[in-house]
Amino acid sequence: MSSHLMSLHELAENLSNPNVKILDCRFVLGQPHAGREAYLQDHIPGAFYCDLEQDLSAKVEAHGGRHPLPNLDELAAKLGGIGIDAQTTVVAYDDQGGAMAARLWWLLQYLGHDKTVVLESSYTHWKHAGHPTTSELPHATPKTFTPSIQHTHVYHIDEVKKRLGQPGVTLIDAREERRYLGLEEPIDPVAGHIPSAINHFWKDSLTEEGSWKQAEQQRARFEDLNPDDEIIVYCGSGVTATPNILALREAGFQNVKLYAGSWSDWCSYPENPIGTKQGE
């Protein structure tokens, strides 16, 4: 099994590789300009900036969640515009524990571009390790990015509803436990979780230092899961579910879906049932 992660050292050795494109995905929820401002201040040499809300999400509607999936044709055009084609290895990084980078990684997997990895550590780790940074903006040589959409990677609300409580299906809530239990809800109008969901907080994908855990550690995290099950992962808006999906893939799980709208979509329908107890 090939890893979906790249080490700092390996990226440092490939900074001048024309077949490697680096995408800076830094973004701070609630501070929509902070990531771009940080990028303009300094970034990994050659990195292009990808904005969670401008590039990796569509506009918010009444339903569909707080970060709906972007228009895929527009995303493909943006990727091609910065020089990504079928031969390009894409390396994504952020400074948010890999959550934003994993969103980009998942979207590229969804578009059929398997040559996509997430940097094993954050941008802060990169700087502390003494690797180069720059404020210089990269030059783009446009190419043609041709998507091959993997429809089986994603579920929408009707598909999730059909599978609730079904044998052979595991639903994972990637939010912190207090939100999962409905004890607090700082963002969405309703607290709780989708009935039958179990809780695996996405930040448990990381070591205490904030780097990604190794594959064997991820397998230990998910030892309660049946590898033959269909696994559906959601979070608040479809962003922090993606680090869990990457971790599951690292652990060897293959049949893993994203509920794209996640809790913010689910709770936008008043008639939908809500769980507030462990395993309920």
Rank of each mutant, 00 (worst) to 15 (best):
Q31D: 15
I84K: 06
N199L: 07
Y110W: 15
E216T: 13
S2Q: 12
G35S: 12
S196V: 15
A215P: 12
L258N: 10
H151A: 08
Y234H: 13
K59C: 15
S57D: 00
N14Y: 05
Q96P: 01
E120N: 08
A220Q: 14
I232A: 09
G275C: 00
G165V: 09
W202A: 05
A76M: 15
Q254V: 05
S205H: 11
P138S: 13
L69Y: 05
G112K: 10
P243E: 13
H153S: 00
Q214S: 07
Q218A: 09
E250V: 12
E185N: 10
A102P: 01
S268C: 12
T116D: 03
G236E: 11
E37S: 15
G252D: 09
Q31E: 15
C25I: 01
R103S: 02
W106S: 07
E250G: 13
L183A: 14
S122M: 03
E120K: 10
R221D: 10
A220E: 04
N71Q: 15
P147I: 14
C235I: 00
H200R: 04
C235R: 04
S237E: 11
G252A: 07
Y110S: 06
A215T: 15
E37D: 14
Q54R: 15
W263C: 11
G64A: 01
L248Q: 05
A58W: 11
I187K: 05
H4L: 15
K78F: 11
L23R: 00
G98H: 02
H125F: 11
D158S: 09
L164K: 07
